[in-house]
Amino acid sequence: MLSGVFSLLSALLLITLDAVDVAFTEAAVGAGISIVLMLSTLTLTSRREKKSKNSNLIPLMIVIITGVTLTYGTLDMPNFGAADTPSQIHVAREYIKRTPEDIHIPNIVTAVLGSYRGYDTLGETAVIFTAGIGVLLILGRLSLRPRRRAKKIEKVL
């Protein structure tokens, strides 16, 4: 599926941008788990899309206006890869300098994720746990549930 190819390509782009950890995650999660979920959803629902009757003009207008506004916003941004931007000279240098002294592990991303920002990661796992419970509650006992609504819909139609 094209979406998987897209995830894999974006993972490659992330590697060229020096974000190897993110690329690993994107390849495993985006190109792996997401696609499995997407394909299983398509198997459980329908594969063909029906043609929409709505006109495409209004969405196109909204998208173009938003895009132009965002492009205008980038004019103040620093050039790509510049070393003297606020994002590089603010706290990032401190993290790079202190990681070997504080945490004693080579990977700075891991150090920040697991130690400096450990509570955030805990919150992240809480989010995943909640989503898992949500999916289980929505889909649990899928075949055993009586189809109340479906009968009603048949009556209406």
Binding site: A19, T25, V29, G30, V112, D120, T130
Partner: peptide, 16 residues
Amino acid sequence: PLPHVLILTAIVVGVA
């Protein structure tokens, strides 16, 4: 490394 950390979290939350 800070954007990497942020996005690492965001990817996982996105999948959720």
